[in-house]
Design a protein around this nucleic acid. Structure first.
Length: 667
RNA sequence: GGUGAUGUAGCUCAGAUGGUCAGAGCGGCGGACUCAUAACCCGCAGGUCGGUGGUUCAAUUCCACCCAUCACCA
C-alpha cells in the first residue's frame, strides 16, 4: 500500500429544525463508508460534522413552540446524534455551529476579509413585516404569481410556472408569519466581494478534480458572472452578531461551513496530537473533502473556497456532491408513508440492510437514487443473506460438527483464492472513487463464484465417504476464506455484520490487506446467524408508521405490550377548552376549540349526551395532539379528547390536577 | 422562464471514440440439489435502448426539437 495519507472528511451539517429521515442518511452513509474504507486502509482519516443551528426557520419554529432556539436545536441535535450512532455512522466529532469555536472562527474570517477590503456595505430593499417587526426572507412571503396568476406562491419562484421573481413582484403579498401585507423597507447589508474571486475559483476548480456535472454547473455560474454575496441579516435573527453592530447578524450560510472547522477545532481541544493550523492553513499536506448534496453546491464550490482563500486558510481538496433520494420512484411523501424518519426505520429494520442497499446504488455522480422498497427486500435478502452470509453458513456447519471447529492448514484451490486476493486493488479503487455500486457488484460476483465452488465440490456428498472426509475440511476452509475476504471488503459498508463475522473467525482486528492472506489452522466457535432476512411485514409496518393521514395501525394483534417508544409516539397534551358548541346536524358531537399552548385547534368530540357545552369552557382536558387531522362531515377534527366510559351519558372527560397548563406534555 | 442532469427488459441498474452494444441482478418460468437463514446451482427473457426529425453505408450511442422527472437560479 502507498504511504499513509492524512484526510479530513465532512458531511454537510444537518439543519436541525426537524428529525432525521431516509434522505439525510444517503449522505451520512456515503461519507461514513468512505471514511471507514480509508481507516481500514490504514490512513489517518478524521470525520467531523455538526448541527447547523442558526437562521430564520429555526428562530421562527422555536418561537412557535414557545421555546428558545437553543432548546429547539439541542433537542433535534440529540436526535440526529442518536440516529447517526444507531446507523453506525462514526464521527470523530459531532459539534454545533452555535458554539464558541464557531463564533471565534467566523469573526476571525470576517475580520480578515474586511481588512483585505473584501467586505463592504450597501443598502438594499427587502420585504418587511411591520407587525412582527422583522425583515422577511423570500420564502416567508407568499402571494399570487405575477406571471401565471397562480395563488399562494413563494416570494422567490412560482411552483406552477416556475418563473422566478422577487417578493415585490407578487400580487397581494402576505407575510406567512403575521398574515399582514409586507412593506418594502431599506436596510444596510454587508457584502462579500465574490466577484473578484473568479480567477482563483477557476484555478481551484481545476485542482479539485470535480465531477463533470459539478464542473458543468460551476461553468454555468461563471458564465452568468459572479455576483457579490450578501452575508448579513437584520435582527431579529438567530446567529452571531456582526462585531461593531447592534442589529446585524452573519447570514447562516456564512457560518455553517465554518462549522466544519469549528467542529475540528473542538476535536483538537480533546486530541492533543491534532494541530488545527496543520489542517487548515495554506501549505497543509492534509486532504480535505466535503460530502454534500447537489442542492448546496453553490455554497461549497463558490462561496466557501473564496471565503477560505480570502481569509488566509487553505481550500478544500475536493467537494463530492450526491443526488437526492426518492422512495418508490417519487419524492418522499408524508401521505404515502414514504417520508420515513431514521428512527422509524430503526424501529423496524436492521441498519445494515439500508447501508448495503444505498451502497449498491450509490455512484460518484449527482444522480438521484431510488429506494424501491420491494427491490430493497429482494436485494438485501438475495445478496446479503442468500449469497454472502450463506457461504459461511453452509461451510461452518461441517467445520463445527465434524472437525471441532478446526480449519485446514492449507487451501485446496490457491488459484481460486487468487481471484479473491486479486480483487483487493480494483475494489479499493472503486471505493476510493466512490463507485460503491460497482464495488458491490464485483463483490457479489465473487460471492457467486464462491457458492458455485461449494456446489461443484459437494461437501455434503463427500462427508458420507470415509476416504474423502479430509477433503470436506479443505473445501470448507476454502469456502470460509472466500467468505472472509468478501466480508473484509464489505466491512466499510456493513461494519456491524463484519464485526460479528470477525468474532466468529476468532480474529482481533482487520485491515484491508488481511483479505489477501488466508486464515488457516484456526479454531472457530460455533456459527451463529450473522443477519436475518427482511420480512415484507417489517417494511409494511414501517410505511404504516410513517403515514400521517392514516391512524397508527393496531399492533396489539400479535403482541399485547408496546414499547416506551410506541407510547412516546403519542403526543398527549393538556388543552384548555376555549369554546364548546353544539354541531348542527350531529346529535353526539360537540365542536371544541382548544388552546394547546400557543395555538388553537378544533376538535370534534362525541360527548354531547354527557356534557352541556356551557359548562366546558375554561376546563382542562387531555388531547392527542399528533393525531392525523380527520375530515368529518362538519369540518376537520385536529385531535382527540380523552375520556373514559362506555358512551352515551356515561362519558367522563379526563382532567389534570390543578397547576397543569395548556400545552404541557403528558407522559 | 433560464441552465444542468436523467429517461435502456415487470423492478433496480450496467453499457460503447456510431458498426457481435442490446446486458446484469432481482422477479417470473422450467430443471437439478438438499450442505445452507425455502438459501445455492443449471437453463429460459425477445425490451422499436422516452418521442419526432436530421447527419451517416450504418445510431440506442452524434445533432435539433419535443415530452417526462429531478435540481439550481446567490
Amino acid at each position: 500500500m502507498s504511504q499513509q495519507r492524512k484526510i479530513l472528511v465532512t458531511s454537510a451539517l444537518p439543519y436541525v429544525n426537524g428529525s432525521p429521515h431516509m434522505g439525510h442518511l444517503v449522505e451520512y452513509l456515503q461519507t461514513d463508508i468512505w471514511v471507514r474504507f480509508q481507516k481500514l486502509r490504514g490512513h489517518d482519516c478524521i470525520y467531523v460534522c455538526a448541527s447547523d443551528a442558526h437562521g430564520t426557520p429555526i428562530m421562527l419554529k422555536a418561537r412557535e413552540m414557545g421555546i428558545t432556539p437553543e432548546a429547539l436545536t439541542e433537542g433535534y441535535s440529540a436526535e440526529f446524534a442518536n440516529d447517526f450512532r444507531d446507523f453506525g455512522i462514526e464521527f470523530d466529532n459531532y459539534h454545533t455551529t452555535h458554539s464558541p469555536e464557531n463564533e471565534a472562527l467566523v469573526t476571525e474570517i470576517f475580520e480578515a476579509l474586511r481588512k483585505k477590503g473584501d467586505i463592504y456595505t450597501r443598502t438594499i430593499e427587502q420585504a418587511y413585516d411591520e407587525k412582527e417587526r422583522m425583515f422577511l426572507p423570500d420564502r416567508f412571503v407568499r402571494g399570487t404569481c405575477p406571471f401565471c396568476k397562480t395563488e399562494d406562491q413563494y416570494g422567490d419562484a412560482c411552483e406552477n410556472c416556475s418563473k422566478t421573481y422577487t417578493p415585490a413582484d407578487l400580487i397581494d403579498p402576505v407575510s406567512v408569519i403575521s398574515g399582514t401585507a409586507p412593506v418594502m423597507r431599506e436596510s444596510e447589508h454587508y457584502f462579500f466581494k465574490l466577484s473578484e474571486y473568479g480567477d482563483r475559483l477557476r484555478a481551484w476548480m481545476t485542482d479539485a478534480t470535480l465531477d463533470k456535472n459539478v464542473v458543468a454547473k460551476l461553468n454555468e455560474w461563471f458564465d452568468a458572472g459572479l455576483q457579490d454575496w450578501d452575508i448579513s441579516r437584520d435582527a431579529p435573527y438567530f446567529g452571531f452578531r456582526i462585531p461593531g453592530t447592534d442589529d446585524k447578524y452573519f447570514y447562516v450560510w456564512l457560518d455553517a461551513p465554518v462549522g466544519y472547522m469549528a467542529s475540528f477545532m473542538n476535536l483538537c481541544g480533546r486530541r492533543k496530537d491534532l494541530d488545527f493550523d496543520a489542517y487548515w492553513r495554506p501549505g497543509s499536506d492534509v486532504e480535505v473533502y466535503h460530502f454534500i448534496g447537489k442542492d448546496i453546491m453553490y455554497f461549497h464550490t463558490l462561496f466557501w473556497p473564496a471565503v477560505l482563500g480570502g481569509a488566509g486558510f487553505r481550500t478544500p481538496t475536493s467537494v463530492f456532491a450526491h443526488g437526492f433520494l426518492t422512495v418508490n420512484g417519487q419524492k418522499m411523501s408524508k401521505s404515502r408513508g414514504t417520508f420515513i424518519k431514521a428512527r422509524t426505520y430503526l424501529d423496524n429494520l436492521d441498519p445494515s440492510f439500508l447501508r448495503y442497499y444505498y451502497a449498491a446504488k450509490l455512484g460518484p455522480t449527482i444522480e438521484d437514487i431510488d429506494l424501491n422498497l420491494e427491490d430493497f427486500i429482494a436485494r438485501v435478502n438475495s445478496d446479503l443473506v442468500g449469497k454472502l452470509i450463506n457461504i459461511a453458513s453452509r461451510c461452518a456447519g461441517f467445520i463445527n460438527k465434524r472437525f471441532d471447529g478446526r480449519l485446514a492448514d492449507r487451501l485446496p484451490d490457491e488459484n481460486l483464492f487468487a481471484d479473491f486476493q486479486g480483487a483487493a486493488d480494483s475494489i479499493a479503487l472503486l471505493y476510493e472513487r466512490r463507485e460503491y455500486s460497482k464495488a458491490m457488484r464485483s463483490i457479489m460476483a465473487l460471492a457467486d463464484k464462491a457458492n458455485r465452488y461449494i456446489d461443484e465440490h459437494k461437501p455434503w456428498v463427500m462427508i458420507k465417504d470415509a476416504d474423502r472426509i479430509a477433503d470436506v475440511q479443505l473445501v470448507c476452509t476454502q469456502g470460509l476464506n472466500m467468505f472472509r475476504s468478501l466480508i473484509i471488503y464489505l466491512s466499510p459498508v456493513i461494519p456491524a455484520v463484519a464485526a460479528s463475522a470477525r468474532r466468529f473467525l476468532n480474529e482481533e482486528r482487520w485491515q484491508w490487506q488481511d483479505a489477501t492472506s488466508p486464515l488457516l489452522a484456526a479454531t472457530l466457535p460455533r456459527f451463529e446467524p450473522l443477519l436475518t432476512r427482511v420480512e415484507p411485514d417489517q417494511v409494511t409496518r414501517m410505511i404504516e408508521q410513517s403515514q400521517e393521514s392514516q391512524p397508527v395501525p393496531d399492533t396489539t394483534a400479535d403482541d399485547d405490550t408496546i414499547s416506551i417508544d410506541d407510547f412516546m409516539n403519542v403526543d398527549l397534551r393538556i388543552a384548555r377548552i376555549e369554546k364548546a358548541e353544539s354541531v348542527e346536524g350531529a346529535d353526539k358531537l360537540l365542536a371544541l376549540t382548544l388552546d394547546v399552548g400557543g395555538s388553537t385547534r378544533q376538535v370534534f368530540a362525541g360527548i354531547k349526551a354527557a356534557y352541556d357545552p356551557e359548562s366546558l369552557p375554561g376546563r382542562h382536558v387531555v388531547v392527542v395532539a399528533n393525531l392525523a387531522p380527520r375530515k368529518m362531515r362538519f369540518g376537520v377534527s385536529e385531535g382527540m379528547v380523552l375520556a373514559a366510559g362506555p358512551g352515551g351519558e356515561d362519558i367522563f372527560l379526563l382532567s389534570p390536577d390543578d397547576g397543569a397548563r395548556a400545552g404541557m406534555r403528558v407522559k
